[in-house]
Simulated assay, not measured.
Amino acid sequence: MEFTQDIDDWLALIATGRSIGITPQSTVSQYRRHGIVFRPLRDAPPIVVRLIWPRHDPHPATDAAVTLLTELYQPPR
């Protein structure tokens, strides 16, 4: 097992065939890499997603981000 400092190092290890991994769906769209195949895991439980911000000095776009992410992550009906 090799230690990596960040997701880019980890994905480089995977691309060279020295590692495999499990990752959230967001990695598929945010970190596409040549030579890596992403496959969904059947029957895997969903992961919890959290949005965080500083309590006493929220960013001006915080309310819009909360609204958008609430819509995106609503459970299916």
Rank of each mutant, 00 (worst) to 15 (best):
L13C: 08
I52C: 13
H34Q: 14
H59I: 01
E2G: 14
L41V: 09
L72T: 01
E2H: 10
S29P: 01
Q25M: 05
A64R: 07
P45Y: 04
T16F: 02
I22V: 14
Q74V: 07
G35P: 02
R77G: 15
A65V: 08
I47M: 13
F38C: 13
S29W: 02
V28A: 12
P75F: 03
A61I: 08
R18M: 09
A15C: 02
D63C: 05
I52L: 11
I7S: 02
W53A: 12
A44N: 07
T27C: 14
L72S: 09
F3E: 12
H34Y: 10
P24W: 06
D6E: 04
G17Q: 03
L11E: 08
L11F: 06
L68F: 12
T27F: 07
I36H: 10
D57G: 12
H34W: 00
H59M: 12
G35M: 02
R50I: 09
E2P: 05
I52H: 10
I20A: 14
H59A: 12
V66I: 15
W53F: 08
Y31L: 09
Q74F: 01
I36R: 09
Y31G: 00
I52K: 02
R32W: 11
I36F: 01
Q74C: 10
R77Y: 10
I36G: 10
G21Y: 00
M1R: 07
P58K: 00
P54C: 00
I36A: 02
V48T: 15
G21D: 08
L69V: 02
L41R: 05
V37A: 13
D9P: 06
V48Q: 11
P75K: 04
I14Q: 10
L13K: 11
S19M: 08
P24N: 15
V37G: 14
A61C: 04
I22Y: 05
I36E: 07
P58E: 03
T16C: 11
P40Q: 00
R42V: 07
I22S: 13
P24R: 08
T23K: 00
D6Y: 00
I20D: 05
P75D: 09
S19V: 00
A61T: 04
